[in-house]
Amino acid sequence: MILGSTPNRRAAAARPRSLPARAGIGLKPEHFRDILDTAPDLGFFEIHAENYMVDGGAFHHYLTRIRERYALSIHGVGLSIGGEGPLDEAHLDRLATLLGRYQPESFSEHLAWSSHGGAFLNDLLPAPYDAATLARVCEHIDRVQERLGRRMLLENPATYVEFAASTMAEAEFITQVVRRSGCGLLLDVNNVHVSCTNHGRDARDYIDALPLYAVGQVHLAGFAEDTDAAGAPLLIDSHGAPVAEAVWALYCDALDRVGPMPTLIERDNDIPALPVLLAEARHADRILERLLPIARGAAA
């Protein structure tokens, strides 16, 4: 059969499709030239939306060229979906412009807040899991999905404290959000490991309690180790180290439950040379390939 370039096909091709069930890495300015020069075989690149909310210059120059060759995930870190105030509509406008320009296969944000009273605090901060937060988060996600005209993925957080005011467990809260808003789940396996260690929970039980049917992407990253005031382990979601063995193991378990998923290797601090990140991505790819014997056979 010949796939003709009919208007219908062109229209279909112009729609954002989904990310491949392969490994991708975060796009860093340090690697712009290396990527264009070496054209590494990768499932996708991910950018933090806010870094590209500028008018022009090198960031757009390189992203435009890299986007032409790779699938793209846009990951927001500044919408403050868990915040008490209304969503920042100007920021939502900037996001809509960025998504319109680059047509990413995926858009995701965090179950967290980062702005309060007009100040941007530049961290992913926790909120109590109660009815008021649930209503607010769902309202905000509704607005985001309406404004952007697409479904978003919500990422489970890494947290260091819990609230006396919480009336439900985090996984239950996320389940409610996903059910009410129709958003998807970005399963950050490192965040699961970090949070469950920090709050004395079983990571596998936690994952089992999530709405796994809604998972659309997986994140992997490295953490830093500290201790709390009682000497118990306190893991910090630093994105500054290779993915830990415990997180790889949890990733394998999670994939057994959700199937092959686009998987991001995140590294935002102490950024190594490109080949180091590509090696981690290949490791994730090998784990994914074990789940894809049919697809592999068909491609051979």
Partner: peptide
């Protein structure tokens, strides 16, 4: 106020992670 920890440890050091991040 209003922060709790699973092991009853004082939340100050945990909260300090957020302050340090910011």
């Amino acid at each position: 106020p209003g922060l709790v920890t699973w092991n009853g440890s004082a939340p100050d050091k945990r909260f300090a992670v957020y302050r340090n991040n910011v």
